[in-house]
Design a protein around this nucleic acid. Structure first.
Lengths: 147, 147
DNA sequence: ATACCTGCAAATGTTTTGCGACTAA
DNA sequence: TTAGTCGCAAAACATTTGCAGGTAT
């Protein structure tokens, strides 16, 4: 946590940007959220604590935070856009529950290896990838089969 | 091609929807496009041939075509939304070129199998998934390394 | 005849931008 | 002092919707 803030400050200084109360507040809220919040989720959370803050500032700040390497914007199906933590989160993929919306972060070295092989087969030089599996999570699944 | 139109007509009839000139025109354009067109791509193409057509009609018709099982809406990164062919296109994943935007459809049974195993490990019942690998395609790659 | 469809324009929802006031360094 | 930021409101986009007139069956 501390370290993330230090990185943020260093990024600001290095890029001729200023530290501000609002930026720190938004970063705090984001770091505390372990889910995948949308801009509006963040706006609501921030607003609750710091009512004077503007929506545009949240948009602008999340962009700065992303540029600093602490967050990453993710587009899910259906046009849902949210931010996930990037700092100290190594690469992973997602299981997305169609019922409750829960997003589970997963990782499979086997899949990663096959992806590389697949790219190579097409003479495609892979930079990054994303993978999502949609379905029903453990608890929604249980409820479903009980009924 | 012929068959896709038949399916479309059957779908319309079965669902109490009407056949119309515009719907056939838009379907024609879509079937001829082997890329992954956005609504605007389609609108431009349609407009060129049938200038009287409205943008709202393209939106509405692509929804009908999707419901008929002939197209599928795909959200790529950066909020880019486009339609791909669904009829006679079995499940596949995508290689997306970051330079020229080309989208290559690929399929790896090995990856599919590992995805199932991954879901099972998390007691997650998978319904569908999507996977995209971003990088540079064969020809962009060649240009890049030549320079 | 009667739903349904179309094109247009207006409405909606989301994200970006311009600007005068404010703030960090 | 001087850039960079902020909050607000307006602008810019993308998509959806309401409606009056037109069309397929």
């Amino acid at each position: 946590m501390k370290l993330a803030k230090t990185i943020f400050r260093q990024y600001l200084k290095k890029n001729g940007k200023l530290y501000s109360k609002q930026r720190e507040q938004i970063l705090d809220i984001f770091l505390k959220t372990e889910q995948h919040p949308t801009i509006n989720d963040l706006y609501d959370l921030v607003k609750k604590k710091y009512p004077q803050i503007g929506l545009a500032t949240v948009y602008r700040t999340m962009e700065v935070i992303s540029d600093a390497g602490l967050a990453r914007k993710v587009d899910f199906e259906g046009g849902i856009k949210c931010y996930e933590h990037e700092y100290k989160h190594q690469h992973h993929d997602h299981l997305v529950c169609l019922k409750c919306g829960r997003i589970i972060e997963v990782m499979s070295p086997g899949i990663e290896k096959l992806q590389e092989r697949l790219a190579k087969k097409h003479k495609f030089s892979a930079v990054r990838h994303r993978m999502e599996i949609f379905g029903f999570c453990r608890s929604c699944n249980r409820k479903k089969t009980q009924v």
